[in-house]
């Protein structure tokens, strides 16, 4: 997981429902992660307004000086975004994998309430596994 710093999942109204830190230097506290999540939600919406052509679905990749942010929005409006090292490959497919895990282990969990914070053991377990596999895959390239 050397290449990934953070993972955020936000619901369709901009509330943070899942946050995980994978060893960034300046750790975010809970309040800051909530603020950043809702800020991202609004930036994503504004970017659609500024599009020069029709059919814009919002920011997919933000390239900052020290990190890359890849965002994937599902059809229901849930946004998944990972903060990675600049130029880290395979982030789109990783986001799709995370979305698969979300549908399998969060949405299919009978005790999970939609749009509420995710506290699902199986999801966390499989997520950790997927990221470990991804790391091995990256190392093998």
């Amino acid at each position: 997981m050397a290449s990934i710093y953070n993972l955020f999942i936000i619901n369709k109204s901009g509330g943070l429902i899942f946050y995980k830190d994978y060893g960034s230097t300046g750790r975010l506290d809970t309040n800051d992660s909530l603020r950043l999540a809702s800020l991202w939600h609004s930036m994503h919406a504004i970017s659609q307004q500024l599009s020069p052509t029709v059919g814009c679905t919002g920011i997919e990749l933000l390239e900052a000086d020290t990190f890359d942010l890849h965002c994937f929005q599902s059809l229901t409006g849930t946004k998944f975004f990972v903060v990675s090292e600049p130029g880290a490959p395979g982030m789109e497919s990783l986001l799709k994998t995370i979305y698969d895990l979300y549908t399998d282990y969060v949405l299919k969990n009978p005790f999970y309430e939609v749009e509420m914070p995710i506290r699902c053991e199986l999801f966390e377990l499989n997520l950790a596994q997927a990221l470990r596999k991804d790391k091995l895959g990256l190392a093998g390239r």
Partner: peptide, 28 residues
């Protein structure tokens, strides 16, 4: 968000040009 620095200040405080981590592009 900058994952490489420790002292990041508060969110929303105006910054000088070149201060803090900036970005050079985004794509939709």
């Amino acid at each position: 968000m900058d994952p490489t620095s420790v002292h990041k200040g508060n969110l929303g405080v105006p910054q000088f040009a070149g201060q803090g981590c900036s970005f050079h592009s985004f794509s939709t």
